[in-house]
Design a protein around this nucleic acid. Structure first.
Lengths: 248, 248
DNA sequence: TTGGGAAATTGATTTGCATCAAGGGGAGAG
DNA sequence: CTCTCCCCTTGATGCAAATCAATTTCCCAA
């Protein structure tokens, strides 16, 4: 996933500036639809950041918004605190996904974003990105599309589904996103603890645990701590009541 | 709210093409931040549509996406049907708000949009709008902002709040949006029946009715059928657990 | 290796809201 | 005017998931 380290300082400096063109995620991420020339212009403003340890924060609610972040590797979680200090998980972000979009409107970050495991990001200074987007129509189009895609994700989260529908939908969503990234859509590791999954799905941890157990008993999945194996995608989809139509 | 009718046919034809410049909503809607010259360019592609009766649909899930719609007058509801044929209200749209944004990503409308009362809209052909947005940076910026704003709205809807928090938050949200539009934030009419409010808040109609009754008993609000009078904004805010921070 | 602590599971009980059921009150049609 | 339909409200009951409670398991650090 991470590129080989550059030993020559000049090459290293160039590699920091030349990210998107060589990046395996360019089919999913901001550069979708750009030709090499435009991608190199995008590279000029993308800044690869030093990796973050699990638990390290990328930004916090209330900080002035300057930068969008694209996931290079690892998994990130965005969340808020409500007035009683309870955490509200809003999203999990996989490689190729853009974070911080909800901060554009108010100009202030609306979420805390934290690395769930060792994670790498590319920083995209927003003002420069939007200037470039006026010059590269396909870049503008892709940003529109990424924003619009997040709307659909939230619309799913906002639906009133049962615990089973939510958990099944969550697993299928992850499965789809794994496949998009070239990984198995049947076997994958959850980067987040059950507590975060439950919080994201607006369920109690115990409820998630019980539903998972039930799915295992019914032969739909197998789990081994953080590892999940989906045995019956069609059955899972039925349990989700087909509430998840992948938009691909 | 509506402009005076033009009697002279040539003037009438021109007025159809010249909407934004004269529109009282330009401070809220797509043209925010544009100077008169740019607004006139935007006017070239905006098409005011004939008014829709209550119950008339603007678009339906699955139709090819070509057009964003801005509310000129009235109130609109966007919703989907789940796999069991139950309606899921996703949003209510007031004048100046943009509808259809979730269709950008997949290129197909993701929601049905229906007029709740006599409603007027401006049609914005998406491909032309995005082309113009590359030429007018502030227009692009405003579209980014409107998309981002919708993300925050959905994030609220996706939170796990109690029935009281939801109803209080809903009333305060409407109150804020009324104020933005120059109307009283204390007294206003609900364009939608209780059933739609309940559906939007993922509650039963009966629950909404009970919460409203409780708020009335506690002196927070008064209601008379569709008319709402907010008596104690601070108290309401406390009932909402401050879950709604207006983003201005 | 062992002890401590967080994470996960399982069971018992509670509860907030949905559902079921019934009655009141406007608005529009005839 | 009156009938009718739909919307809204109120009350009674049931249920899905939260909460409370108790283990078990895993991981890491000493």
């Amino acid at each position: 996933m991470s590129s080989t380290p550059d030993r020559h300082p000049v090459l290293a400096a160039r590699s920091i500036r030349r990210t998107c063109v060589n990046c395996s995620l360019s089919e999913l991420c901001v550069p979708v639809g750009l030709d090499v020339t435009d991608m190199e212009r995008l590279d000029q403003l993308v800044e690869r950041q030093p990796p973050l340890d699990a638990g390290a924060h990328l930004c916090r609610v209330g900080e002035r918004f300057t930068t969008l972040y694209a996931v290079r590797s690892g998994c990130f979680k965005s969340y808020r605190m409500d007035s009683e200090g309870r955490e509200r998980v809003l999203a999990f972000h996989l490689p190729g996904e853009l974070m911080g979009l909800d901060a554009i409107y108010p100009g202030v970050y609306q979420s805390n974003i934290v690395a769930l495991d060792l994670g790498g990001v590319c920083a995209l200074p927003y003002s420069e990105l939007s200037r470039l987007a006026t010059q590269i129509p396909r870049l503008q189009e892709q940003i529109f599309r990424l924003l619009s895609k997040d709307l659909s994700a939230y619309a799913w989260l906002a639906g009133d589904y049962s615990a089973e529908e939510r958990v099944a939908g969550f697993l299928l969503d992850l499965s789809n996103r794994q496949r998009e990234r070239g990984y198995s859509d049947r076997v994958f590791n959850l980067a987040m603890p059950r507590r975060d999954i439950a919080n994201y799905l607006r369920l109690a941890t115990e409820t998630v645990s019980r539903v998972v157990t039930r799915f295992e008993r019914d032969g739909l999945i197998q789990t081994e701590r953080r590892e999940v194996r989906l045995l019956d995608l069609e059955g899972l989809n039925a349990r989700a009541n087909h509430c998840l139509q992948p938009l691909g």
